[in-house]
């Protein structure tokens, strides 16, 4: 849309060689030329590795070498062995819980900042954005200090005399993982929801009020459906990376809280069965993709029904 028809005014063509004259001949060619460095890197470090990952998942580890005959045995293992199945289910369960809690908690906050903060909006936005950029590792580690045996919660409760011994259920279980991840991904939810709320045309809300709709009805029939793209985006950017989270389960999950990423890391580390690790990785990509697509479709459908 913004493209003008000025490719011929752009530069004195004679200054450049034949190649650039060729490139300047068409808009699209110039665009592709500018994009080519990014695309080369993307193919080298994203596309090629993913293809190799897929290939590896079809091979077999034999001692220290890899047998390159194609087989689906690794996938059969991934889906039938109890250990793996349990890890997959727990991963999906934990990620879903994290996604739902995070979005539900973030929505009112984004709503408040968009509709009710008049001055200091910038301050609020920066405060909500900072954690997004600060060290992920440290944010996770902070929770170990809070939930640990001698940590903040236990020490305080013991001091006040509510409990005699540290609460052991705080750390090293799936709940600790859910709390920590919900905190770590909080800003991932705020920003998309904030943007979609901010985009809503206020005159629609005024029109609804003029026509006699109460605040709840207005929210339910206008604000919520129109902010749904933000909610969906938030849910996707939380759900997808949390299914691959390694640090939190490793640091706070304990044996009962490990997730599929920890198993994948083990296959590439101590166990040294790369094909198995690759098959687990591919399976988890496939599962997450299917669930995400279904979920986005379902939410869109539900939003359509409200209107």
């Amino acid at each position: 849309m913004t493209a003008t028809t000025s490719s011929d005014v752009r530069a004195p063509t004679h200054r450049f060689g034949a190649l650039s004259r060729l490139l300047q001949r068409s808009e699209a060619a110039q665009g592709y030329a500018l994009l080519s460095p990014v695309m080369i890197i993307m193919f080298a470090v994203l596309a090629a590795p993913l293809v190799l990952l897929a290939l590896y998942s079809l091979w077999t580890q034999v001692g220290f070498t890899v047998d390159r005959t194609f087989t689906l045995d690794r996938y059969a293992d991934a889906f039938t062995r109890d250990t793996y199945r349990e890890l997959f289910l727990r991963t999906l369960w934990v990620s879903s819980l994290v996604t739902i809690t995070t979005v539900l908690i973030a929505y009112p906050v984004a709503y408040y900042v968009v509709f009710h903060v008049k001055r200091n909006k910038f301050v609020w936005l920066v405060l909500l954005t900072i954690p997004f950029w600060t060290s992920y590792l440290l944010r996770i580690f902070a929770w170990k200090i809070v939930l640990g045996y001698g940590g903040v919660i236990n020490a305080s409760l013991m001091r006040v005399g509510i409990i005699d011994a540290p609460l052991e259920f705080l750390l090293y279980n799936p709940t600790a993982v859910v709390i920590t991840l919900a905190h770590a991904y909080a800003t991932f939810a705020i920003l998309p929801i904030y943007v979609s709320l901010e985009k809503i045309d206020r005159s629609l809300l005024e029109a609804a009020a003029d026509l006699g709709d109460g605040p709840w009805r207005r929210f339910w029939r206008i604000t919520l459906p129109l902010s749904m793209p933000g909610v969906i985006a938030a849910a996707v950017v939380i759900f997808v990376p949390t299914t691959g989270d390694y640090v939190t389960p490793a640091l706070l999950g304990g044996p009962k809280g490990v997730m599929i990423a920890n198993m994948i890391q083990l296959q590439f580390g101590k166990i040294n069965d790369w094909p198995m690790g690759a098959a687990l990785a591919m399976s988890s990509i496939a599962m997450v993709a299917i669930i995400t697509v279904f979920f986005v479709w379902a939410l869109r459908y539900a939003t359509g029904r409200i209107r």
Binding site: E27, G31, Y32, P241, G244, A261
Partner: peptide, 30 residues
């Protein structure tokens, strides 16, 4: 610049944000 396939290209460039880092890590390692 106007060019065909712009959306697909942008989506491809944004893709790494939607792939868990562990997957990126191991596949680049491979």
């Amino acid at each position: 610049y106007a060019m065909p396939g712009k959306e697909a290209i942008t989506a491809f460039i944004m893709l790494p944000l939607f792939i868990p880092e562990i997957i990126l890590g191991i596949s680049i390692l491979i």
